[in-house]
Nucleic acid binder design. Structure first.
Lengths: 218, 218
DNA sequence: CGATACATTGAGGAGGGTCAATCCGGGTGG
DNA sequence: CCACCCGGATTGACCCTCCTCAATGTATCG
């Protein structure tokens, strides 16, 4: 088990990120116990049904949380980027599977460490609250928004979370966007085409770059 | 502000409920600070946008958490019954509105109390985890399940949470079930009729009683 | 006993799913 | 350097689930 690399401090400093707001003492203690995990695209961080004894903080890359209905229907529950945390669950076992979207590195914080550290637990609780808040937002989108609105909402969210430049790097394919939004890939593609024809976005290149021409049009 | 009534201890003892698992010391301390709230049907516990400085534990009755898209589209995010907690939010302000489904009584736990009480905070964190877990379940239902499956899932959930007898008291109307499931009232009614004709449930009486004839048929 | 509110049922339409064809870029091998 | 192939995006045509609108049924209340 490696110590928390120094890059963590630099990388995870987003709004409410894991290490942000941690004072020197806390960060030092965390560094001493946090493990290091590296994943390639498609690799599983943890699987549904496996025992949950740790939380993970994303340092680099992206991770998605997936649930399946039967073998065919996949619902992506959340995307997690640098500074986010995954692994919260209920009842000691994971209810969903976490998979890396690309090459990713994470730090692993054993559950036991939180029991010993009230300050860390309080901090993690804030992140847990944000995860709940985001999940509730998704309920609204999935339950009451049209396909066009859902695609726009996703692009706005990613535009905000991944940096609001004139170009957006989508770390996932159309298929993943569809499974996140409760739609079919064809539908997502059609809505993207509509946005392109409306001059809101540019052409979606094969390496995931999407020019955002009119952010207010989302 | 009243002290936490004795009925709380008796009422809130469900799996993972607020007072369940609290030892005598904790419960005693909580009793000293918890406020008391009573609501009639349709009354607002807290509104979206209002500052969030407390958590609420449901003692009697039921509360729902609602979000609106525009003025027309309502999405019900969760139902909360005896033993559940509402009021978790992100960023100091509520993002949704909590409304009583019928006559309800709750206890109010100021946010500040949790800062002073690490044990209470740890306990509340478990409840927060369960709320997240339930919200993720809803994402799966809203994103990947048919109308028939959603209605069955709701009835199964309520049957489990409100006691698994041969009869189920639904504390909400068809309209609320629809707004929870991302459907229209007519669709929910049709699916209920289908279940009735399949002999799975009986007639849905006007006071909310629904006979569950074949629980395995849900 | 009428009025109201809600559940139910029916008929028709639209949004998004399904299936299939085509396009496109990038990798591979000649 | 180019032909070929392969995975994924795009587009089209059709269909089905669920929505919309409207009428009817039914229980509660004044």
């Amino acid at each position: 088990m490696l110590a928390l690399s120094d890059t963590c401090t630099a990388a995870i400093t987003g709004r409410g990120g894991l290490c942000a707001c941690l004072n020197a003492t806390l960060l030092g203690r965390l560094r001493a116990v946090a493990g290091d995990v590296r994943l390639d695209a498609g690799e599983v961080l943890f699987a549904a049904g496996s025992p949950a004894d740790a939380l993970y903080g994303v340092r680099h890359g992206a991770v998605m949380l997936c649930a399946w209905v039967g073998a065919e229907r996949r619902q992506i529950l959340s995307f997690h980027f640098s500074g986010d945390m995954v692994g919260f669950t209920d009842g000691g076992r994971h209810h969903a599977t976490a998979i890396a979207l690309g090459r990713a590195s994470l730090c692993r914080i054993p559950e036991t460490e939180m029991d010993n550290d009230p300050a860390l637990r309080g901090h993690v609780m804030g992140i847990l609250r944000r995860n709940l808040s985001q999940s509730l937002d998704m309920q609204v989108r999935l339950g009451r928004m049209s396909a066009a609105e859902r695609v726009r909402a996703l692009l706005t969210e990613l535009h905000g979370r991944l940096g609001g430049g004139g170009e957006l790097h989508l770390p996932m394919r159309i298929a993943e966007m569809a499974d996140y939004l409760g739609l079919r890939p064809e539908t997502v593609s059609r809505e993207m085409s509509a946005l392109r024809q409306a001059g809101v976005v540019g052409a979606f290149t094969h390496d995931g770059m999407l020019p955002i021409l009119r952010p207010d049009g989302l």
